[in-house]
Design a protein around this nucleic acid. Structure first.
Lengths: 134, 134
DNA sequence: TTAATTGCAAACATTTTGCAGGTTC
DNA sequence: GAACCTGCAAAATGTTTGCAATTAA
């Protein structure tokens, strides 16, 4: 992804571009993937970039709030950030702690139930937990 | 639920019955509900029972492992324990942090995708997040 | 008596926050 | 110069663990 694209994306999502945010976006949005905050930090460190832990957490939180990435909650011990924001579902490999996208047409969620009175749906998560076959 | 029932249930799930475990089971299994560890502790405290935090956490973990209750992971800040173990799905009220069961026939998940090679499905979680209508 | 459970406090891991210093418009 | 961002360290949160004392088979 080019920096010009990223800048457009940031503008569309009302995010002020800074060096650290662009760096984090380059890592996370470079491919369809699911990374935890720690994994993002690790990759930045590997790439020789120096960003503080607080900034990584705050930036990922900001990205999620602004709709640039999606949080995936499958494990009480850490949040994953998903670079794919179009609706789709996940396999969660409980042995490895990794996420895998499910092709949307493989899991037809034909109709959603009506939301309870006074509420509206703001997200649907489907997680199929899988383990190594015994 | 009667103590004799609970004892049978414990035996079926290979759980050694102790006073604290029965107490926790009475609270959690008394109705279809979704409680966090802290909520269980609160209820025990309200009922005048004294059980340590560690025992509550360890007991809930044990119940989940033995299949007596189900963990529901919807919020990175806490795990809920669901007294209903038959397959079903959830509304999660993001405003209140509470869970509500979805009637199974209202959400037809007709066919699951095949699990990735070498893996088998060990659980399916569907969470419909809802918020107060704006 | 031997194994298992409990309770307390301390440890843990992830995430958030307060605040001083720096950057951007 | 006003508003915002960054980074460090400290705090907060939910959960787990080590270990001595207790309880159960």
């Amino acid at each position: 992804m080019q920096d010009s694209e990223l800048n457009t994306l940031f503008a569309q999502h009302d995010i002020m571009p800074t060096a650290q945010r662009l760096e984090i976006a380059r890592i996370l949005l470079g491919a369809p993937q699911h990374l935890s905050a720690e994994q993002v930090m690790q990759r930045m460190h590997d790439a020789g970039s120096s960003v503080s832990k607080a900034t990584v957490y705050n930036t990922l939180g900001l990205f999620a709030e602004k709709g640039l990435v999606r949080q995936v909650i499958v494990d009480p011990t850490r949040v994953f950030y998903d670079s794919t924001t179009v609706p789709h579902f996940h396999f969660y490999h409980v042995d490895t702690g990794s996420l895998e996208d499910i092709e949307p047409d493989l899991l037809p969620l034909s109709r959603l139930p009506r939301a309870p009175d006074g509420t509206e749906v703001c997200g649907v998560d489907v997680i199929v937990r899988v383990q190594r076959r015994s």
